[in-house]
């Protein structure tokens, strides 16, 4: 298995899936090298879960080829199942069992050597901070605990390829970051391949080596986070004014990139560096313009999305100056 580093861990060619006459996936090509993290990014209903279900042998494609860990998904589903671990969008734990029992169930079904089962369960409980809750029924767990248990159950079989469908949706910022650390650890320590789906652009940016943007059943872009950002060009600064008068005045004075007459907002070209900000503020002062709000927008995946699909998705465009430092995620 380890010799196959050149072979893609996940490959899809011209995959199509329709429900009735609703085409959900239309000619998807994917190629995920072993040992990397791949993010499938898309808004609600774009087909992310459908893609994961196809790859994890739950449903069959109408056309195209899918290979996972060197096996054809349609012809050798059991070989694929032996290589993968799936954490679906919705919790896949047995709510009537305790956390420990759930993990033990997985250890039994993965037919770990008998002596190792208890140890494996204990290790995972420890690693996922579930020791205290181990004896409680999963039905009493919080959303974050369920998510951790879910992922822990996926790891029992030591899968080589892991599919994570929206692993952090619904988690608070701290739990989200914990989940990110776990995902990074899996790739760094165990060299697994991960395909994750997300609606959060910063999550894909944080975790993925490569990103594919899925929109209305088609991949509209694929590349590294940097490549995608480069497609969009420089950043801009958004200014919001209190009233029509200030707005019109400013629109005449500044080099406006785009304007929104209803919201009294103007966008001007520029990066978030101190020098150009100071220059801008000076000009606003000289013209005696009272700005209600100023937001600096460095290019991120939102722009990618906007540029590719014409639709903004997810978090609102840009971050306000005051909070942009606090919102910065720790560097990788």
């Amino acid at each position: 298995m380890t010799a196959n580093h050149r072979q893609p861990a996940v490959a899809a060619t011209a995959v199509r899936k329709a429900y009735g006459d609703h085409v959900v996936l239309d000619g998807i090509d994917l190629d995920i090298p072993a040992g990397s993290v791949f993010a499938l990014l898309g808004p609600n209903g774009s087909g992310k879960t459908t893609m994961v279900r196809l790859l994890s042998t739950l449903i069959r494609a109408d056309a195209g080829d899918l290979r996972v860990a060197g096996h054809d998904v349609a012809r050798e589903p059991d070989a694929v199942r032996a290589a993968i671990g799936v954490t679906g969008q919705f919790s896949a734990v047995d709510h009537l069992l305790t956390g420990a029992e759930n993990l033990l169930l997985m250890a039994d079904l993965n037919r770990l050597p008998r002596k190792e089962r208890r140890r494996c369960v204990a290790e995972l409980l420890e690693r996922f901070e579930l020791v205290d809750a181990a004896g409680k029924p999963a039905s009493t767990y919080s959303g974050g605990m369920l998510r951790r248990l879910d992922l822990a159950m996926t790891l029992v079989g030591r899968p080589r390829v892991i599919f994570l469908d929206e692993p952090t949706t619904g988690l608070d910022p701290r739990s989200r970051r914990t989940m990110w650390e776990i995902i990074r650890g899996l790739v760094a320590d165990e060299g697994v391949t991960i395909l994750l789906t997300t609606q959060y652009l910063d999550e894909a940016d944080q975790l993925a080596d490569r990103i594919a943007v899925l929109y209305q059943g088609k991949l509209v872009a694929t590349g590294t986070p940097e490549e995608l950002k480069r497609q969009v060009g420089g950043g801009h600064i958004t200014l919001r004014f209190a009233d029509q008068r200030g707005y019109e005045h400013a629109a005449g004075v500044l080099e406006v990139v785009s304007r929104n007459d209803a919201a009294f907002t103007l966008q001007v070209a520029g990066q978030g560096d101190v020098r150009s900000l100071r220059a801008l503020l000076d000009r606003l002062d000289r013209a005696s313009l009272a700005v209600e709000e100023l937001r600096v927008h460095t290019p991120d995946l939102d722009d990618v999305f906007f540029a590719l699909t014409g639709n903004p998705v997810g978090t609102p465009l840009g971050k306000s100056v005051s909070s942009s430092v606090a919102e910065q995620e720790p560097a990788r």
């Binding site: 042998t57 070989a79 799936v86 679906g88 047995d94 159950m153 079989g157």
Partner: peptide, 13 residues
Amino acid sequence: TTGVVTRFRTMAI
């Protein structure tokens, strides 16, 4: 209808 059975379907059992 529970998720855990969906999980079973993705396992080599």
